[in-house]
Measured scan of single mutants.
Amino acid sequence: MRVFPVYAPKLIVKHARIFLTGVIWVKDLGRLEFEKGRFLLPRKSLPKVKQAILELNELIEAQN
Score class of each variant (00 low, 15 high):
Met1Phe: 02
Met1Arg: 14
Arg2Met: 15
Arg2Ile: 15
Val3Ala: 05
Val3Arg: 12
Phe4Gly: 01
Phe4Val: 02
Pro5Gly: 08
Pro5Phe: 15
Val6Thr: 08
Val6Lys: 07
Tyr7His: 01
Tyr7Asn: 01
Ala8Gly: 03
Ala8Glu: 09
Pro9Glu: 03
Lys10Gly: 14
Leu11Trp: 10
Leu11Asn: 05
Leu11Cys: 13
Leu11Thr: 06
Ile12Lys: 01
Ile12Trp: 00
Val13Leu: 04
Val13Arg: 02
Lys14Gln: 13
Lys14Pro: 05
His15Gly: 01
His15Leu: 04
Arg17Phe: 10
Arg17Cys: 13
Ile18Val: 12
Ile18Thr: 10
Phe19Arg: 08
Phe19Pro: 00
Phe19Gly: 04
Leu20Ala: 12
Leu20Pro: 04
Thr21Ile: 08
Thr21Ser: 13
Gly22Glu: 02
Ile24Ser: 01
Trp25His: 06
Trp25Phe: 08
Val26Phe: 01
Val26Ala: 02
Lys27Val: 14
Lys27Pro: 14
Asp28Thr: 13
Asp28Gly: 14
Leu29Thr: 04
Leu29Ile: 09
Gly30Pro: 01
Gly30Cys: 03
Gly30Lys: 01
Arg31Gln: 11
Arg31Asp: 04
Arg31Met: 05
Glu33Ala: 14
Glu33Ser: 14
Glu33Pro: 07
Phe34Asp: 00
Glu35Thr: 10
Glu35Pro: 02
Lys36Ser: 11
Lys36Leu: 09
Gly37Thr: 07
Gly37Cys: 10
Gly37Ser: 07
Arg38Trp: 10
Arg38Phe: 12
Arg38Ile: 08
Phe39Arg: 04
Leu40Val: 11
Leu40Phe: 05
Leu41Gly: 05
Leu41Val: 08
Pro42Cys: 10
Arg43Ala: 08
Arg43Ile: 07
Arg43Glu: 08
Lys44Pro: 05
Lys44Ile: 05
Lys44Trp: 08
Lys44Met: 05
Ser45Ile: 11
Leu46Val: 12
Leu46Cys: 14
Lys48Ala: 08
Lys48Asn: 07
Lys50Phe: 10
Lys50Gln: 08
Gln51Asp: 08
Gln51Glu: 07
Gln51Gly: 10
Leu54Phe: 09
Leu54Gly: 09
Leu54Glu: 07
Glu55Ala: 07
Glu55Lys: 07
Leu56Lys: 11
Leu56Ser: 00
Leu56Val: 03
Asn57Leu: 03
Asn57Phe: 04
Glu58Ile: 07
Leu59Gly: 04
Leu59Asp: 04
Leu59Pro: 01
Leu59Phe: 05
Leu59Ile: 09
Ile60Tyr: 06
Glu61His: 07
Glu61Gly: 07
Glu61Pro: 03
Ala62Phe: 08
Gln63Ala: 13
Gln63Gly: 10
Gln63Thr: 11
Asn64Ile: 10
Asn64Asp: 13
